[in-house]
Every structure is written in structure tokens, then in C-alpha cells.
């Protein structure tokens, strides 16, 4: 690809499974290139086949290693697997070291596996802004199962549960009492609990802790078609991966074949809609802030006006006709300004 290839052409190449085209489209989605927006719209309408698995857990719990071992299992079932692995961007420089791939190096020579590393670039919630676009692109590219590995999360980065058909929460043994804090945030979002590093002697304690927590909530659980399993695995010995793969298979059937699965799919669409709108709002706001915020901040410092009034002024500026952001090319097509 030495010349500039239009995104519409890349869509056709990606649909044939051409890896360079898939890679380039994901880059353009990440860059928010206006030229690519039409292509992404086409891709979204044509995608929707793949089973999307979200995998989340605290930093160092073994997510990347587990993704690699799980992917190897899924490959034996003949499934093509796409992986989007998210790592944090530096809040200072904006740069990132994307290291998840290193744990997956055994998969690199398999053409049925595609691995993409993605930096958060300031996005909160555990995903990057273009993560779900990347999922659609891989879906179009013929990948049957797409695994999203979130950044190492703390307590409330739970967006992954709103974006995936099957959410796997990874806990590691040895975190002691701190596990309690994690459970409070993550217990609700797991469709499957995994305890990693089960070759360690203290893993059983963690397994029992999570199982007991689940029984406490059983009476109020809103998932009648699904009992959340707790699976212990060791990526080191290979133990537990048969059980994990079976649990994922069973949950895929729930996700695609039951009423609760349909409700989940609607919830995923709703999340996608609201998140996209939120990103568009932030984009407009950020552009208005660059030009307007300095003067408004100066007025605030002089106490000419109060924070709420000036904030409203800044918000109004985000939607002004003919302001800087209107003239540039980043404006999304068909954006109904008149309604604002």
C-alpha cells in the first residue's frame, strides 16, 4: 500500500480477510479520520456475526497470558480469533508502551489469529475510543470470535460488560483482602469468573471466596438463564481451559439464542449509541474549549461571573454555527446541528 488507498476500497479488501487492509482501517478509525467515517458506517451494517468476549481484571492478573491460552483452545475448534488488547496511555506524554502482545507471541505465526494493541489515549472505562470500531472491522474480516482485553482495571471500569456478549472477569490469587474491593465492583459484570494462576497454592482460597460471594447474591440475580461459573485456570499447566472453553461455548448459546441474550444485544446497541454520542460531544466541546476557555477562565478568576454561567457559555459555544469546529473537516456527516 504505497499510495493512499480510499477507505471504501479497504473495506472490500478487509472483507476478503486481507490483513494489511484490516490493520489500516483500524488505524483510520483510531485517528477518527473523516474520510473513514463512511467506511465505518458500511462496516457496522455488514458486521454482527462474531461472538464478542470481553476479558477484564486487575493489572498483572494474567489477562494477556490467559487470552493467548484461550485463543489456542478456540483455534482447535476451528474458530478464527481476533484480539484487541488495550493498554493505558501516559497521562503526561500521551505515549504508551503496548506490551500485551509479548504474552501472545506463540500465536503470531497462525494466520487464523489477528492481534491488535490499542492505547487508551485518555479514554476512561477500560476501553479505547476505537475499540468497538476495531471489533466491527475484525468481524467483517471474518473473525468468528473477538476477544477484547481491557486495560488492567480497578473497580469501576465496567464498560466492557456493556460492549461484549460474554464478559470474563479474571482474578488472581494472592491479592489477599484486596480481593474484597474488586469483588464489590466486578461481581455484577462477570458472566464467567476466572481465577488465574491456579498452580499456586493460595488459588483455592480465591476460588472459594468468589463462589461464596456469588451465592450471597443468588436470590437477586437478574440472569435467570445463566448461573455464573467460577473457573480456576493455570496458563502455565493448561489446567482448567477445557472448563473455561465449555463455559464460553454455553454462554455463547445464551447470548445468541435466548430472550436474555436478545436483551443484552439491545443493551449493547444502546451503549454503543450513547458512547458514540458522548464522544462526538467531547470532540466538539474540546474544540470549543481550545479557543474559548482561556478568556472564560480569566473572567472566572476575576469573579466577573460564576462557574455555572461560564460553563453554560462554554457549552453553548460548542454548538455555535460557524465557529472553528464547524469549518474544519472533522465534523461528522449528517450531524443535525439544527436540533441543538
Amino acid at each position: 500500500m504505497s499510495r493512499y488507498v480510499p477507505s471504501s476500497e479497504l473495506v472490500e479488501r478487509a472483507a476478503r480477510g486481507e490483513v494489511p487492509a484490516i490493520g489500516r482501517l483500524i488505524s483510520r478509525a483510531e485517528a477518527g479520520m473523516p474520510e473513514a467515517r463512511g467506511a465505518l458506517a458500511t462496516i457496522y451494517r455488514r458486521a454482527g456475526r462474531a461472538h464478542v468476549i470481553g476479558l477484564t481484571g486487575v493489572p498483572g492478573s494474567g489477562k494477556s497470558t490467559l487470552v493467548a491460552a484461550l485463543t489456542a483452545r478456540l483455534r482447535t475448534q476451528g474458530l478464527k480469533v481476533g484480539i484487541v488488547a488495550v493498554d493505558p496511555s501516559s497521562p503526561y506524554s500521551g505515549g504508551a508502551i503496548l506490551g500485551d502482545r509479548i504474552r501472545m507471541s506463540d500465536l503470531v505465526n497462525d494466520p487464523g489469529v489477528y492481534i491488535r494493541s490499542m492505547a487508551t489515549r485518555g479514554a476512561m472505562g477500560g476501553l479505547a475510543r476505537a475499540t468497538l470500531d476495531a471489533v466491527d472491522i475484525l468481524d467483517l474480516g471474518g473473525f468468528d470470535t473477538i476477544i477484547i482485553e481491557t486495560v488492567g482495571v480497578g473497580q469501576d471500569e465496567v464498560e466492557i460488560a456493556k460492549a461484549s456478549h460474554t464478559t470474563v472477569v479474571v482474578s488472581a490469587p494472592g491479592l489477599g483482602d484486596e480481593i474484597q474491593a474488586i469483588k464489590a465492583g466486578m461481581l455484577e459484570i462477570a458472566d464467567i469468573h476466572v481465577v488465574s494462576k491456579c498452580d499456586r497454592s493460595d488459588a483455592n482460597r480465591t476460588l472459594v471466596d468468589i463462589k461464596q460471594m456469588l451465592t450471597l447474591g443468588a436470590a437477586t440475580s437478574a440472569k435467570p438463564e445463566w448461573q455464573t461459573p467460577v473457573v480456576g485456570v493455570s496458563s502455565y499447566t493448561g489446567e482448567g481451559f477445557d472448563a473455561l472453553t465449555r463455559a464460553i461455548d454455553r454462554h455463547r448459546d445464551v447470548a445468541f439464542g435466548t430472550a436474555s441474550g436478545s436483551r443484552r444485544q439491545l443493551a449493547i446497541a444502546r451503549f454503543r449509541l450513547e458512547k458514540t454520542a458522548e464522544n462526538l460531544l467531547i470532540e466538539r466541546f474540546a474544540k470549543a474549549a481550545v479557543t474559548r476557555a482561556p478568556a472564560l477562565a480569566e473572567r472566572l478568576r476575576r469573579r466577573d461571573a460564576d462557574p455555572y454561567s461560564l460553563a453554560n457559555e462554554l457549552l453553548a459555544a460548542s454548538f455555535e454555527r460557524g465557529s472553528a469546529h464547524e469549518r474544519d473537516h472533522h465534523r461528522p456527516p449528517h450531524f443535525a446541528e439544527d436540533h441543538w
Partner: peptide, 13 residues
């Protein structure tokens, strides 16, 4: 160095 210059760096191992 590249990270601190704001780049996305993937290391192969």
C-alpha cells in the same frame, strides 16, 4: 524515550 515523546510503542520481546 519514544513513549515519553508521546508515541505508541509496541515491543516484540
Amino acid at each position: 524515550t519514544l513513549r515519553d515523546a508521546g508515541m505508541d510503542v509496541i515491543y516484540s520481546g
